[in-house]
Design a protein around this nucleic acid. Structure first.
Length: 552
DNA sequence: CGAGTCACG
DNA sequence: ACGTACGTGACTCGA
């Protein structure tokens, strides 16, 4: 592990043989790492912070992470150190693989590398990092990204490190019984499908399934195909064929259950950490071009919730004894941001009225009193509101509402008549992207959109939708990051026992000591609601429970 | 290792 | 005549 200080010195911490030597070294470096007046520089510092935490050292003081800095400078690119070194320093560092071998089971431990080799690697690592810092920091400042870096991204690193280390407990018994049920159901569906098809085949193979449905059973003479000339067999297509043949609904159910089994129910238990007995996701702070986080190994940001059977999996995420889950989420944050950023008076008024926003939209675009809005009208308005955030097109909306292009266009025209400021704002975002080459979030995060000048209208259309969506999605990401930092700081300074454990884009989940529940709930709601002052309030919904299902 | 599919916000 | 809703990660198949 290597670190740099302001003076550019490389530090090597080797992994000593004896316990005594380890302790000596730790006590030498501890005052440095724990000194809040010393700014630490590193590449992917979340990792280093965790290694040090394993040795009981808490890294304090400001951070400057070159990976994160480059993410802010070039959010669409990749940020690993060798790549950065090659493109900014014209120098190819020693690959870690040359010391410990390729990734996989045979990858050696750092401890097995001879100390002289290790030293060379470590010193180079610190040197490269420091040189990158010297290049990136001025760019961050001149790019108007200093506040975002100093106040949000760099402080967030420690928050994420702690959340990852906290992890979340899984009820393995619960998952086991889900597994048994799923396996049974899958086997019987399999048999039914083979009977209905009149032959056995691999249902999980889109190619084989397509051939069965569209050649053997001839369920659609005009079946559409992919670029690779396979039949499309996705859910949307299959749904439309439900009435054509009883095999369809069986296949859909089979697909759904297989997904649950392989992606969640069977996979999650394998990722329980032997030492902690918990699941530790890792958050990637530098992949999503809009500024969102992502989660992997496992991805805990896509645990099923929409469908009843999938939602059961959430019951297996449980707090420790004496604890309860608290979940708090921003209500309609992206649409609220559209209202705020566009300053559209009528959308602001709709939010301030306290009415259901989709019903209010429906009332306007369909020209009926709000209490005369039907479920169907509300549902369409909701789809339109989503479309607006994504950078609507009449084609896209018509696909989702299964209506004609003309009808969709009329709906959009009606929408813009109701919320004229939104139309003006969207045009302004695209104009800004053309003029500057990028768009920004409320906190100055940039996304470059070079394709905005493309002569190819498909490519250009994509950039135009990004010009509309990125400031919205990105501002929402900025806001929850601010809330996370403030909540984390307060939980530490006010000595809470509870832990922040998960973030799912607009939602935070806490494993709360039961005695702290009321206080923590107020703290979380306050900090989330007040992370930023908008023209309309940020609404925060919350729930508690003895598992994630109940709390959500 | 790309393609197809599908889980989430 | 084109072909698109925004952002991710994981699994399975099959060349």
């Amino acid at each position: 592990m290597t670190f740099s200080w302001e003076k550019g010195t490389g530090y090597l911490i080797h992994f000593p043989e004896s316990q005594k030597e380890t302790e000596t070294i730790l006590e030498i470096v501890r005052p440095l790492f724990e000194n809040p007046a010393i700014r630490k520089i590193g590449q992917n510092m979340k990792y280093d912070i965790q290694v040090l935490a394993n040795y009981g050292i808490e890294v304090k003081g400001p951070l400057f992470d070159t990976m994160i800095a480059h993410y802010l400078l070039e959010p669409d690119m990749r940020h690993n150190m060798n790549l950065l070194s090659e493109s900014y320093l014209g120098y190819s560092p020693v690959h870690i693989e040359s010391l410990i071998g390729e990734k996989g089971n045979n990858q050696k431990n750092m401890r097995s590398v001879p100390v002289d080799k290790l030293m060379e690697y470590a010193v180079e690592d610190a040197d490269v990092t420091y040189q990158l810092k010297m290049i990136f920091e001025p760019k961050i400042i001149s790019g108007g990204l200093a506040d975002l870096a100093r106040d949000i991204e760099m402080p967030l690193i420690s928050v994420l490190a702690a959340m990852e280390r906290n992890g979340v407990k899984l009820d393995l018994e619960d998952l086991k019984s889900i597994t048994i049920n799923l396996r049974e159901d899958i086997i019987s569906l399999e048999k039914e499908i083979y009977t209905l098809a009149g032959t056995e085949f691999n249902i999980s193979s889109p190619k084989q399934l397509g051939d069965i449905l569209f050649i053997r059973l001839k369920l659609d003479e005009k079946a559409r195909v992919t670029k690779t000339k396979q039949f499309i067999t996705n859910e949307e297509i299959l749904q439309r064929l439900t009435n054509k043949h009883p095999i369809i609904s069986k296949v859909l159910e089979y697909r759904g259950l297989k997904k649950l089994l392989s992606t969640y129910v069977e996979a999650l238990p394998l990722l329980v950490d032997k030492k902690t007995g918990r699941i530790h996701t890792s958050y990637n702070q530098a992949v999503a071009a809009t500024g969102r986080l992502s989660s992997n190994n496992p991805n805990l940001q896509n645990i099923p919730v929409r469908d009843a059977r999938g939602r059961e999996i959430r019951k297996a995420f449980v707090p420790e004894k004496g604890h309860v889950f608290l979940s708090a989420d921003y209500s309609q944050i992206e649409l609220r941001l559209m209202a705020h950023l566009s300053k559209d008076e009528s959308m602001i008024a709709d939010f301030l009225s306290g009415n259901d926003i989709h019903a209010a939209t429906a009332s306007k675009i369909f020209g009926v009193e709000i209490d005369k809005v039907t479920r169907e009208m509300r549902s369409r308005a909701k789809t339109a509101n989503f479309g607006i955030i994504y950078g609507i097109s009449s084609f896209g909306l018509s696909e989702r509402l299964t209506i004609g292009r003309k009808e969709a266009k009329d709906l959009i025209d009606g929408y813009f008549n109701s919320y004229p400021g939104v139309k003006i704002y969207m045009d302004e975002s695209i104009r800004k992207a053309r003029d500057l080459g990028y768009v920004t979030t409320m906190f100055g995060r940039k996304r470059y959109l070079p394709d905005i000048h493309s002569r190819n209208q498909v490519v250009r259309g994509n950039a135009e939708r990004n010009a509309i969506n990125a400031p919205i999605q990105g501002s929402a990401a900025d806001i929850i990051k601010i809330a996370m930092i403030r909540i984390f700081d307060r939980m530490k300074s006010e000595e809470y026992l509870s832990k922040m454990i998960l973030q799912v884009h607009d939602e935070l989940i806490f494993e709360t000591a039961t005695s702290e529940l009321e206080k923590l709930k107020d703290l979380v709601i306050f900090e989330m609601s007040n992370a930023v002052k908008l023209d309309i309030p940020l609404k925060v919904d919350w729930g508690t429970g003895n598992n994630w299902f109940e709390a959500h």
